[in-house]
Amino acid sequence: MGCIYGLVALGFVLIYKATELVNFAQGDLLMLGAFVCYMFVIWYGVGYWAAFALAIAIVALFGAALDASVLRRVIGQPQFAVVMLTIGLGAIFRAFASMTWGSEIYTLPTPFSAKATRVGGVTISHEYVSIIVGTVILCAVLYAFFTYTRVGVAMQAASQNQLAAYYMGIPVKRMFSLIWAISAGVAAIAGVLLAPVSLIDINLGFIGLKAFAAAVLGGFGSIPGSLVGGITIGLIELFAGAYLPHGFKDVAAYVVLLAVLAIRPQGMFGTVGRKKV
């Protein structure tokens, strides 16, 4: 569970790092990813892996299109406006999903379903293993991409100073679309991995709120921070569910978040920003 929060949080952080937009619709992209995958598997009888790939591709394309059509216009506007914009987009996605797929709850069968491995007396179901493995692979790939490829470095440049990046000949618009595609793709992966564990319905996107808490907990703008934040929140929920009275499970994560922010307003791994005058 923590890995899922981490993955969604990773999506937030990717977009934030690259375009300084805070994407509240990330959770809803995750929901779309899960639904698209479900649609291919159940309605069209496509195999799981093919459907997985299709879902990622479709949602990633959708993310790029979203950037090109909508989000590009708001770059440079106050962050607050962008937050509202993505909240609005999220609402539209949910309405779209409920119209297309209805408001029923689905389950997604996967190759890992109902299989488990026993490791030293602890039973771990393969679904969870798949989430953890998926997260690790994804992180490695993204890290390599941003550090070692030209495109990745160009993206970092574009995020620090758009105008300067233009002058250096970096196709900034394409970079932003690409980053949206990647981020949407990450959301879709998280959605598909989450689908067998959780159930698919239109409110799946609300997991985004928790993931957001994870991103902030870790320190917005820090990729390892987002993963650590996600795992922390997942663990807190697990322990709160086990040891604290009923009802604390849902809020424990937020209580911890508030406590951490009260002590370190920039999150665990965030850097202290100070305006230069």
């Binding site: 914009l85 909240i87 609005g88 539209i92 309405a95 779209f96």
Partner: peptide, 8 residues
Amino acid sequence: GIFGLILV
């Protein structure tokens, strides 16, 4: 959805 659309 309509709320969202108007907001956007």
